[in-house]
Design a protein around this nucleic acid. Structure first.
Lengths: 130, 130
DNA sequence: CGGAACACTAACATATTTGTGCGTACTTCC
DNA sequence: GGAAGTACGCACAAATATGTTAGTGTTCCG
């Protein structure tokens, strides 16, 4: 059933594309799926955040990586950066409409992983025990 | 609207988890989202494949990376490896039921990217032109 | 009989990603 | 007055990811 759905999607989208080494979608995919991209999207899915706020929310990210990641996502048009010209700097990051669509899928994937985690871990234990 | 949905999912799943640096889901996420993991899942979504067949289908992957990726996905319980004991080796890879669930989300994300690519590229051009 | 295909693996070299520490120009809090 | 917070950029180091090459043992093909 899932196979039929997947096959249908593959056919309708002519999904040979990403599988081709030189498709531009590879770049976008990597921004959304590298170590921090997905996490930032998840964090932003709940609304606008300031830089330091994001940094605290996404556990383990360094300032450097966060700004890098945000820059990539901004360049892809997923994130809107708004800098208020005040003296202690104040910058807001939020998802664009396009970003919200992307975030929906990322959140779905991440959410599924979390939900399936018990089953995944159980499978790992079974393999390890054999 | 999307925000409300995302917020709801986040709350119901207590999604602080992935955002926490030490959640095991981080590992699974990285296997599904690193350079080749997602592509292999997409390729396998259409049915079982042999090693060399996958290698040809996923553009640009080296033998080393492919076997590494497959091993990771197998360890997560997403891929089932079946080795037929014949003399020119013959090994089949296919998604497990769990893997099919995961692949559904990955295919959805990748598919969306391909569909949204025109809009994404248009946005990039607009930014570059300014 | 030479060569390709199969499904890998080990060793090594390189590329890319990520982290760390420092500096900024100012303000607010104690 | 000293410390901390703000949103980064830069240079350098370390870690990780990826690629390259060569090799395995057999069988089929020309």
């Amino acid at each position: 059933m899932m196979d039929r759905i997947a096959q249908g999607l593959l056919d309708s989208w002519k999904l040979g594309n990403v599988l081709a080494a030189d498709c531009p979608s590879r770049g976008v995919l990597s921004h959304l799926t590298n170590r921090w991209g997905a996490l930032v999207m998840v964090a932003l899915a709940t609304g606008p955040h300031r830089f330091a706020e994001l940094r605290r929310k996404v556990g383990g990210v360094s300032e450097r990586m966060l700004s890098q990641t945000l820059k990539d996502l901004e360049a892809d048009g997923f994130v809107l950066r708004t800098a208020h010209q005040v003296v202690p700097p104040h910058v807001d990051y939020e998802l664009t409409p396009l970003g919200r669509e992307a975030a929906g899928h990322v959140v779905a994937l991440v959410g599924w992983i979390e939900g399936a985690l018990p089953r995944i871990m159980a499978g790992k234990l079974a393999l390890a025990a054999e």
